[in-house]
Simulated scan of single mutants.
Amino acid sequence: MKKSSHSVKHIILYLLAAVVVLMTTLIPSASQAVLAAPAALADTAQVMETADSLPEPATDTHADNSLSSGSVDRQIENKKLPSRVAIIVDDFGNNMRGTEEMFKLPVKITVAVMPFLSTSEKDARRAHELGLDVLVHLPMEPRQGKPEWLGPGAVLTKMSDAEVRQRVEAALDNVPFAIGINNHMGSKVTGDERVMGIVLAVCKERGLFFVDSHTNYRSVAGRMARELGLPPVENHIFLDDVHSVSHVAKQMKLVHERAMSQRYCVTIGHVGIQGKETAAGIRSGIAGMKDSVEFIGISELVRDEWKWNSQVTLP
């Protein structure tokens, strides 16, 4: 019995020694793994930060592309929104052909009114009474074109800072109920940082936003708007670059495709010599889109896409 008991003790001692050896071997590896975990997380964060700093896709005009929880919540919220179209109609204010037809369209439009013309105030008031958004369609100097095409109160690059400011403020005062500005012509001005800085500064002071009509593909308006904390709104498709009902209807199909693939589309048409044809083309296009997209005013788009709450005080 004593011999047997002595053997058992030896076996227990051998087992204890084996356990000690195993613990000595494994514990450093475990501790190294624990120490390595924060470094791995830091590497992941750096990768995320690098990805977050990449340029935005050309089809996405969001000012905030971060991966913060707030941005994720916003992306989820936006996915719940239907595809939407904001139609801006330019050149109101001079009793132009197609004015009545545009006002009678069965969907929301945004009415862009040129200042200092015979029906500028009348058209702005009528649009407001119909529940439509109003923009000042501000004449701005183009790279090419006749000066008489601009209309009164145009902003020119040769003007001093004070003169530019005076022109912008006067135009805003002339068009009641305006919640923003978009450019009439303006390919030269929208590429000029000094002049656009003044235009956008006035917008910010008055609680307005600027819609870049995109007559200049090298426009600085969107970038400068972001820098000032304004929504970088821009036109995506001109409806009536060719003046026919069939072409406008064809362009409306492109608007539909963009809205479905990119969630929203901003598009511009005009009253004027071919205003009735543009209105007819828009009406034709609406028929094939009304069940799959929502037609909204530009203020709704700016509010929902860029969380912009205008502080403008309307008369």
Results as ranks from 00 to 15, higher is better:
284 S>H: 15
264 Y>V: 03
301 L>S: 04
266 V>H: 06
215 T>L: 11
234 E>Y: 03
220 V>M: 13
289 M>H: 15
247 H>W: 11
297 G>F: 15
249 A>D: 12
213 S>E: 08
231 P>W: 03
206 R>I: 01
300 E>H: 11
212 D>N: 10
245 V>F: 07
258 R>P: 01
218 R>D: 15
286 I>P: 12
214 H>T: 12
235 N>L: 00
222 G>A: 15
289 M>P: 08
308 W>E: 08
280 A>N: 11
277 E>N: 06
261 S>A: 06
218 R>H: 15
287 A>P: 07
265 C>F: 05
259 A>S: 13
254 L>S: 09
273 I>P: 01
294 E>P: 14
276 K>H: 05
229 G>K: 00
225 A>Q: 09
213 S>W: 05
304 D>L: 08
284 S>R: 15
279 A>Y: 09
292 S>N: 15
226 R>K: 05
299 S>V: 02
247 H>D: 13
296 I>Q: 11
296 I>M: 15
247 H>K: 11
257 E>H: 08
223 R>I: 08
283 R>G: 13
225 A>F: 02
236 H>P: 01
275 G>N: 12
231 P>R: 04
227 E>I: 03
216 N>C: 12
278 T>L: 13
246 S>R: 13
251 Q>F: 04
290 K>N: 10
231 P>H: 05
229 G>S: 06
304 D>P: 01
262 Q>P: 02
218 R>V: 14
237 I>L: 14
227 E>H: 02
276 K>F: 04
239 L>T: 05
214 H>V: 10
225 A>E: 05
250 K>F: 13
302 V>C: 01
224 M>E: 06
265 C>I: 05
222 G>P: 07
273 I>E: 09
211 V>R: 01
217 Y>G: 08
280 A>M: 09
241 D>F: 04
241 D>E: 10
207 G>F: 14
266 V>E: 08
242 V>L: 14
234 E>T: 00
272 G>L: 08
218 R>T: 14
250 K>C: 00
291 D>F: 11
262 Q>Y: 11
221 A>G: 03
308 W>K: 05
235 N>W: 03
274 Q>F: 13
283 R>F: 09
204 K>F: 02
258 R>V: 04
278 T>C: 15
289 M>S: 15
226 R>E: 07
271 V>L: 04
226 R>F: 00
246 S>M: 07
272 G>T: 05
287 A>K: 15
228 L>E: 08
245 V>H: 11
213 S>N: 04
235 N>C: 00
243 H>I: 04
214 H>D: 10
308 W>M: 12
274 Q>G: 10
224 M>A: 02
284 S>D: 15
250 K>P: 06
225 A>T: 02
268 I>P: 01
230 L>W: 01
266 V>R: 09
218 R>Y: 14
233 V>G: 03
207 G>T: 10
214 H>F: 10
225 A>Y: 02
242 V>S: 10
262 Q>H: 14
258 R>C: 02
272 G>P: 11
248 V>R: 03
